[in-house]
Design a protein around this nucleic acid. Sequence first.
DNA 1: TAGCAATATACGCCATGGCGTATAATTTCT
DNA 2: AGAAATTATACGCCATGGCGTATATTGCTA
Lengths: 83, 83
Amino acid sequence: MSDLARTPRQIGTLIQRARKTRGWTQTQLAERAGLRQATISIIESGEKPAKLDSLLAVLAALDLEFRIGARSKGHERDIEDLF
Amino acid sequence: MSDLARTPRQIGTLIQRARKTRGWTQTQLAERAGLRQATISIIESGEKPAKLDSLLAVLAALDLEFRIGARSKGHERDIEDLF
DNA sequence: TAGCAATATACGCCATGGCGTATAATTTCT
DNA sequence: AGAAATTATACGCCATGGCGTATATTGCTA
């Protein structure tokens, strides 16, 4: 299954969760993605939209990928409340 | 279901397909997303990675969304060949 | 509590994505 | 075939995301 990624903040939260699930530090993820630790921190915070290439590199490092699908309705409210 | 979106080109192709399915022009999609027609043209060509905010705006206009999921393996080769 | 590890923040610089606006090129329609 | 519609390209400008590098802050462990 896959998780909603409609905003930079949602994307950042998902990336942080996946990183921690693997037991990696931001520094380790940065090395695998070819970015700086500071860039990973900014991406995970979701306060600035990252460059697409950076995101794609981070997802690849985490063995994840973007997918595009129809907007889901009923599920939407639940997720908003959780974040 | 959802489609793979690992590269700017894959993303662009999916966006173009969704736009044509709705019978819209690039100008119409641009208006709905708050961007220029030229920007839509560039996004659909996939030759330059678009800004995340632009992509999110375009997907919203098309009633689509990004999702993040585990990388799929077997399915991968089929898609690469199609594009 | 002290020390170490991890994360957040900082700054000048650079490459870049989108802007306004226009137009060239291609596609579609009559 | 010609006109209209649609898409691709252009240019100077601007805001911005990431860089190198460092450091401040926070969290964790012994």
